[in-house]
Every structure is written in structure tokens, then in C-alpha cells.
């Protein structure tokens, strides 16, 4: 559905996207994952036609964005990171304007607006001025405009940022629903969001793709080892020594008064750790398993080895 080939973007002399290529199949939900300024937004802006690539090309369905930009744009629904709203318009008139410029059939505009208002749960605010809506509702209006013309492709840039947790859950549910009919590319820097929504992940850092895989593979990569953090009252050297002797523990490190323990994902050494503590008369102040953060994955991917082909 989307084919990105050798895409490169310079802002002046600064290289923002560096020769990236990927495909997104019809009906897939793909996550673009990466830290801030990794090139996610720039990539999305090039797919949607807002920015022209410095080099490379993009095909949306059969249309390439260089020669058939209008046809390509017609297929795309786009929610930018800063939700683009005409704050002086009402929700309905805003959606009406967008339906018209995206060539929704005149006779169906009215019913389509009602439909998306229902989908995005905006019934109460259909005739409110957008400028007076709260942030979460503005986000929903943003989603509503993105789907008004039933696009085959949805591009969502950080769709859950800056809204409250309940709204986040609703937005995710909505994206899942939309993903049944459309191809979705969404960007995020929240790791759990990716595993919740996406079937495949493309990790971008400094304008390059550093990993691209199905979510199952990525999560095994993430949980290549499980990590547990301990806070113990006791002599650090001895504690480290005794802990590393426990069967199933791969590595023990001591930093900032905490012990970080790594072990294979199928092992659970917590009972044994407790036992060791009691035997030696040390006081265990806290014990928690920690998820690998995005930063850890980046470190892992960029330092340990070349990303797997």
C-alpha cells in the first residue's frame, strides 16, 4: 500500500531523514518508533505530501508523490502532531469544509459528518466552536477530520500525546477499530503503545531505520533478558557476590544504591533472592521487575550488534 524508497530529507544542510526504505502492506498497522527529532514527523510529512523529499520517492497505492501527488493525497487521512484546527469554526462546519476539499460526494457529506461525529464521540459538541473545546476533544476532532473521506491510509503523528489517560485508552481503541479498514502508520515514542496497537514496528534513530520487525520479534528482543531492581541494606560487594551466585541470574550490577539483576525471561529468581537475603541477615527494602525502556532498546540496538536482517 505504501512503498518508501531511498527517502532522504535535508533541512538546509542538516540531514533529517537518511536514505530510508520500507513497505507497508494493505491493512497493516505499523508503528514508527523513535526518540524526539529522530525523523518520524519528517517522514510522515513527506508521505502526506506536506514536505517534498530531497531524494527518493514514495508510492501510495499506485500513485507516486512526485508525479501524482493529488491522487496520492486523496487516499491519505492525516493527523499531525499539533492538531490543525480552525478554532473559530464549529465542529460541524470544520468537518464540512474538510469533507469538501477532500472530495467527499456532495450528497453524502451530511451523513458522513454525522457518522464520524458518532465514531469519535463528539455528539454533544457538534455545534460547539472548536476553540472552546478541551484538549482531548480537540484531539478527537483531529481524528474525525482525518477519517472524514474514508481514507485507505491513515497517518497519525503521536496520536495520544498530551491527553488524559482515559482519552488515551479511547483513542487507542478507535485506532484499533480504524485499523480494521485502513492501513495505519502511527508514530510514537511510547513503547507499550506500539505493542498494544501495532503489528509491525519500524525503529528510527537519527534519520535512519535501525530496526524493523514484527512486534513479536521485537518483544523477544526487548525481553531478551528480564531485569529486576533491588534495594538492599548490606555490604554491596558481598551482596553482589552472593546474588551473582544464584542459579539463573546472568548479571548483577550495582548503581546508585540499587542492584540491577538480569536473568533469562523464563526464569523467576525472586524467591531465591529473598532466601539469600534472609540467610545472610540483610534487609531487602524493595524488589521490582523493570521493563526495558526505549532508551535501553536503542542502546542495545545501536551498541551491541548490527540490527538483525
Amino acid at each position: 500500500m505504501i512503498r518508501v524508497e531511498n527517502l532522504t530529507k535535508y533541512y538546509g544542510k542538516r540531514l533529517a531523514v537518511d536514505n530510508i526504505s520500507f513497505n507497508v502492506e494493505k491493512g497493516e498497522i505499523v508503528g514508527l518508533l523513535g526518540p524526539n527529532a529522530a525523523g518520524k514527523t519528517t517522514t510522515m510529512r513527506m508521505i502526506t505530501g506536506f514536505l517534498a523529499p530531497s531524494q527518493g520517492n514514495i508510492w501510495v497505492s499506485d500513485y507516486d508523490i512526485r508525479n501524482h501527488s493529488l491522487e496520492a493525497r486523496q487516499l491519505i487521512g492525516y493527523l499531525p502532531e499539533a492538531v490543525p484546527l480552525y478554532t473559530d469554526m464549529t465542529v460541524t462546519s470544520y468537518l464540512d469544509f474538510l469533507a469538501r476539499i477532500r472530495k467527499v460526494d456532495k450528497n453524502t457529506i451530511k451523513s458522513r459528518i454525522e457518522e464520524v461525529i458518532n465514531i469519535c464521540h463528539l455528539e454533544e459538541y457538534a455545534n460547539s466552536i472548536i476553540g472552546k473545546l478541551s484538549k482531548g476533544y480537540r484531539q478527537r476532532v483531529g481524528v474525525a477530520q482525518a477519517i472524514i473521506h474514508k481514507p485507505k491510509v491513515l497517518i497519525l503523528d503521536e496520536p495520544t500525546i498530551g491527553i488524559d489517560p482515559l482519552q488515551v485508552a479511547m483513542t487507542r481503541q478507535l485506532i484499533r477499530e480504524l485499523g480494521k479498514e485502513s492501513t495505519v502508520i502511527l508514530s510514537t515514542h511510547i513503547l507499550p503503545e506500539v505493542s498494544m496497537l501495532c503489528e509491525r514496528v519500524i525503529i528510527i534513530n537519527e534519520g535512519k531505520i535501525i530496526a524493523e520487525d514484527r512486534i513479536e520479534h521485537l518483544s523477544s528482543l526487548i525481553s531478551g533478558s528480564k531485569r529486576i531492581r533491588l534495594e538492599v541494606e548490606g555490604p554491596s560487594k558481598e551482596v553482589t557476590d552472593r546474588l551473582s551466585r544464584i542459579k539463573g541470574i546472568l548479571k548483577v550490577s550495582y548503581e546508585n544504591h540499587h542492584y540491577i539483576i538480569e536473568c533469562p525471561p523464563q526464569q523467576d529468581p525472586r524467591a531465591k533472592i529473598m532466601e539469600t537475603m534472609v540467610q545472610n541477615g540483610w534487609t531487602l527494602l524493595s524488589l521490582e521487575s523493570i521493563d526495558m525502556s526505549l532508551e535501553d532498546i536503542f542502546l542495545k540496538l545501536t551498541t551491541e550488534e548490527e540490527p538483525g536482517e
Partner: peptide, 14 residues
């Protein structure tokens, strides 16, 4: 300024 230019420039409009 509002970012709505992004709407216009990504819509199928010349």
C-alpha cells in the same frame, strides 16, 4: 501559525 496549513497542503488541492 496554527498549523492548519498542513491540512491544506496535504489535501488533494493544487
Amino acid at each position: 501559525k496554527l498549523g492548519t496549513l498542513e491540512l491544506l497542503l496535504t489535501a488533494p488541492l493544487r
